[in-house]
Lab assay of single mutants.
Amino acid sequence: EAHAAIDTFTKYLDIDEDFATVLVEEGFSTLEELAYVPMKELLEIEGLDEPTVEALRERAKNALATIAQ
């Protein structure tokens, strides 16, 4: 499951495998979680700032909209 989540994140969020791995290690496994989890939870991840989190959430929401079509 972790590998599938990493693949999904790299494909749809335009991030590298290392960043995707950090997200999975922090407990995220779906685009929905990244799109809708409280921003505070993402900001608790070391190295993430508000602009990065906002961009990540926007990419996740856009990916979900694209997949739904």
Rank of each mutant, 00 (worst) to 15 (best):
N62M: 12
E26W: 15
F9C: 02
T21R: 15
L23E: 00
E33I: 15
G47N: 05
I6T: 04
V22A: 11
R59P: 02
A2N: 12
L43V: 06
E46C: 10
A35E: 03
A65L: 14
V22R: 15
D18Y: 13
T8C: 10
V37H: 10
K61T: 07
Q69Y: 05
L64I: 10
T21M: 14
A63G: 04
N62K: 14
A63Q: 04
V37T: 13
F19E: 03
P38Y: 06
M39C: 06
D14H: 10
A65P: 03
L13A: 01
E33W: 06
A20Q: 01
P51G: 12
E33P: 01
Y12A: 04
T8L: 15
I45C: 03
E33C: 12
E58R: 10
G27C: 03
L42N: 03
V24P: 00
I67D: 04
R57E: 02
N62F: 10
D49G: 04
L23F: 03
P51T: 13
D18V: 13
I67Q: 07
E41M: 12
A65I: 10
A68S: 11
E44I: 11
Y12P: 01
A55K: 10
K61S: 06
D7I: 14
E17Q: 11
E17T: 10
G27R: 02
N62V: 11
A5Q: 06
G47Y: 06
P38I: 07
E44G: 13
K61I: 11
A35V: 13
A60I: 07
G47K: 05
D14I: 06
T30S: 10
A35H: 02
N62P: 00
Y12Q: 03
V37P: 05
F28V: 05
A20M: 02
E26H: 15
H3M: 14
L42K: 03
L43M: 11
V37N: 11
A5K: 07
L31M: 04
V22F: 15
A65D: 09
L48R: 03
V24F: 14
S29A: 09
V53L: 12
L56Y: 01
T52P: 00
E17M: 10
I67V: 07
R59N: 09
E58T: 09
L34P: 00
E17H: 12
T66G: 09
Y12N: 04
Y36F: 11
E32H: 09
F9H: 01
R59V: 06
F9S: 00
D7R: 13
A2C: 07
A20D: 01
V53P: 02
N62W: 09
E25H: 14
I15F: 02
E32V: 07
T66E: 12
A60G: 01
A55N: 09
D49F: 04
P38Q: 08
K40Y: 12
D18N: 11
E17P: 10
A4I: 10
L23M: 02
H3Q: 15
T66K: 08
E44H: 14
A4C: 09
L48S: 02
S29I: 12
F19G: 02
A5N: 05
R59G: 07
D14E: 12
F9I: 03
E58I: 09
A55E: 10
P51V: 13
E44S: 14
L42M: 08
E17I: 14
L64M: 07
L64P: 00
D49I: 04
L48E: 02
T66W: 11
L13H: 01
A60H: 01
F9N: 01
E41N: 12
T21L: 14
E25D: 10
L64V: 05
A2V: 11
G47C: 06
D7F: 11
Y36T: 13
L43R: 05
A63F: 05
L48Q: 02
Y36E: 09
L56H: 00
D49K: 04
L43A: 05
E54P: 00
Q69T: 09
E50H: 09
T30R: 08
E41A: 12
A35L: 14
E1V: 13
I6Y: 04
L48G: 02
F9L: 07
D49Y: 04
D49R: 03
L31T: 00
A35S: 05
L42S: 02
F28Y: 13
D49H: 04
T52Q: 09
V37D: 05
A20S: 03
